[in-house]
Design a protein around this nucleic acid. Sequence first.
DNA 1: GCGACAG
DNA 2: ATCTTGTCGC
Length: 214
Amino acid sequence: MVNMSNLIKLQRELSSKVVLKKMRDIPKLVAGFDLSFPSKGIALAVGVVLKYPELDLIEMKWITSKVDIPYIPGLLSFREGPAIKKVYAMLESVPDLLFFDGQGIAHPRKLGLAAHMALTFDKPSIGVAKSHLFGRYKMPSEKRGDFEYICNGNEKIGVVLRTKDGIKPLFVSPGSFVNLSDCVEYTLKTCNGYKLPEPTRLADFYSKKLKKEV
DNA sequence: GCGACAG
DNA sequence: ATCTTGTCGC
């Protein structure tokens, strides 16, 4: 049983702690996280760490965990957050930038999964979602690198970014401790010929692969 | 009331 | 996310 109003109240309090600013240093290590669900009520979380800008995989950890909260649009971090915290704790290396499958501040209360996790780990993060949740936008041109802003009124809260020619664009937004230009720059620089940034693409690959073996 | 709705 | 075969396009 979930008390939605309490979770929403918590999001409003936490979102005030989000800070948008340019990253001070170029990251040396970037991480990506993703989940799969082997069976109802069980989540399999994967965390990967890659060297930047080489994008060589240097570490991969995974864990299974019970999930109590169902998927509710706007409350994704409460469902996936617990499992992500467990894999994050298993990492031996210390990443400088985190990528998540979901929104950053392009969220009704400015606290999508990436924003929530950035505050939880006190680490810069970028939210890379495959579909839209919140904010108005126009479709960017078909060319890789082109983007349009996602807006909430006059505020720019993210970008719809084309990471591959003619392929459906990604909805990218800041978690915390990064700004919009960091999001565009690091998302494009970690996309190696594929639509998704390597961190989340590899985490997604392993979570689906392990799901079949567990 | 109606439409939208990350994974 | 997950359930699932073939199929259209570069």
